[in-house]
Write a protein that binds this DNA or RNA. Structure first.
Lengths: 132, 132
DNA sequence: TATATATTTGCGAAATATTTGCAAGTTATT
DNA sequence: AATAACTTGCAAATATTTCGCAAATATATA
């Protein structure tokens, strides 16, 4: 497991540090997007908050971690490989997973813009059954 | 023009206030997502910043305004009806428009989740040609 | 049209997430 | 083994966004 993350970092050209390994390990304990605060509570060693922020940015930019936003003022993070999207109720905040895939658009966009796309962000907002 | 926004608010069941009309009017001067700060500079009357935040939230929740996030710490706003998505370079920050439509997925998601979807957020991230 | 009710605004202050600079510590390279 | 490159911890700063409350404005009712 640890070894896996080790390879993951190296393959992306990133330095392998204990902090990054621990962050990845903590991420694997969530099956939904986690906030920085939630991650900090789960990480097995003490890591300074700034470091968590900096590490996550690097991991997101490398396409290893998925970052998203539910319009509640905090960033959420999830493993890229099993990331998924949500509908969020703008009234009560309730979230529900959906299995909409947007990945098929990526090659087309890369071709038309010349960008190398490492990740994306997709969330739907509206009113849930109760709040409607 | 003013009258149009008037109707727009009423149709959504929102109160018509001078502040909201001015915000909508300011929004129409941008053809790309604008920050709160950019909007404040463009609005023709003085509106307190808190009010801009509150008004935009209401307008977004009503599906009139599109809100998005480029991972730079600020929220961006655009008219919902002519909103579009982007690729953002995670190195230099450069943005480019794309014309990917996600609207077709909405009815399917509404059916499967029971939510009434008013808007969504979609942005792609990666490296631009220069930064690759 | 006048009155009552509901909603919105302004103001200042507070909360809170996130970023920065720099020295020390770690990791990668030669 | 030594040098260079990168990452981390710490504390403080930055900046966006939210909150409470009284006054103002908008909508609904009579």
């Amino acid at each position: 497991m640890e070894y896996m993350y080790n390879e993951l970092l190296k393959t992306s050209g990133l330095s392998v540090t204990q902090q990054r390994l621990s962050i990845l390990n903590a991420l694997s304990n969530f099956n939904q997007p986690a906030t920085i605060e939630q991650l900090a509570q789960t990480i097995d060693i003490h890591i300074n908050t700034s470091t968590i922020y900096r590490s996550l940015r690097v991991l997101v930019d490398a396409g290893i971690v998925y970052q998203t936003d539910f319009r509640d003022g905090v960033s959420y993070f999830e493993f890229q490989e099993d990331h998924h999207h949500h509908v969020v109720c703008t009234s009560c905040g309730k979230q529900e997973r959906i299995d909409v895939c947007i990945g098929t658009h990526v090659p087309k966009i890369e071709k038309s813009t010349g960008y190398t796309i490492t990740n994306h962000m997709l969330e739907f907002f509206g009113l849930c059954k109760n709040c409607s």
